[in-house]
Design a binder for these strands. Structure first.
Lengths: 155, 155
DNA sequence: CAATATGGAACTAATCTGGTTGCAGTTCAA
DNA sequence: TTGAACTGCAACCAGATTAGTTCCATATTG
């Protein structure tokens, strides 16, 4: 049943990857290899991160994405919001409930408060964690670098 | 973008409705009118609440659903879990990331911790709120009862 | 026995997700 | 200046999920 899309997970993956390859532009091809997906899927998510100001992208040969800010300054909440685009966590009724019924007319207002608090609590946790921390956690688990190859055609 | 299903909202609506009509069995027909949906949709959700032990259902004429426990003893977390059936809030990668890549091989373990904490924070809020509180909040907003009609064929 | 209810199966339409291809446009380097 | 490599966008596909719907077997009441 209803689980969130994997875009947030992939987005954090990508940012950790960019952190690892600090300042070297990473192509969607290379990133896609690490994520194990199609380059276009990566570009869609990188595009959202770019629009949110989290990464910079350079087109053309030798182009690619790099962090627009220090990873210590990027919270997972920003990443989450960049890819989920402000969608509410909890849905209300698909159809407006019966307004002639005391319960139907007032349940949504009552739910709004609780659901909003629950989402805020979730977001507060994401706000406290930075990309740098996740990346550090990943690096700590790496025995050896393990490259995946650059994917760049070496001249 | 990925929002949760509306089942949790409808489930709380139904429980608030049952709280309002305390001990009088409510048919899926009546409940569907308040929710503004099809009786079968209601029965599906009531079925999940029944399997979770939150409501009792009586088949046959003059049957319907009623609360199995005092509304003060039912937390929204139980409701959420009853209808969402233990699905994780955050999805990880659709395909296992490249294990030859240091980031790919370790990102999921790193994400697991943060995502788990975020979900736990969300659930903690739901755990603190009871159906009785939501129902009280609804009742407080009701100027007049506003019945929706019983939908029961009066003899 | 007849009316009214649940419960389950099956089907639909709409939406979302991830994946894929194709192509226009930009950049760099030989 | 040509060609390789890259981004970005649009279009399309298959699979899953959601909410809605119909139909029917079964149970209970009066």
């Amino acid at each position: 049943m209803s689980t969130m899309s994997s875009r947030a997970a992939v987005a954090v993956h990508l940012l950790a990857f960019l952190t690892w390859r600090r300042d070297e532009p990473v192509s969607s091809q290379q990133a896609a290899r690490s994520v194990n997906t199609n380059p276009v899927v990566v570009r869609r998510i990188v595009g959202a991160l770019r629009r949110a100001g989290l990464v910079e992208v350079q087109p053309g040969a030798a182009g690619g994405a790099r962090l627009a800010r220090a990873p210590e300054e990027i919270s997972l909440l920003e990443v989450y919001r960049a890819v989920e685009d402000g969608a509410p966590l909890f849905a209300l009724h698909p159809q407006t409930p019966c307004q002639d019924c005391g319960v139907g007319a007032n349940i949504q207002a009552a739910l709004c408060g609780v659901f909003g608090e629950a989402q805020a609590a979730m977001e507060a946790v994401l706000a406290r964690v930075t990309v740098a921390e996740v990346a550090a956690s990943v690096f700590a688990r790496m025995g050896h670098p393990g490259d995946c190859g650059t994917g760049r055609r070496t001249a």
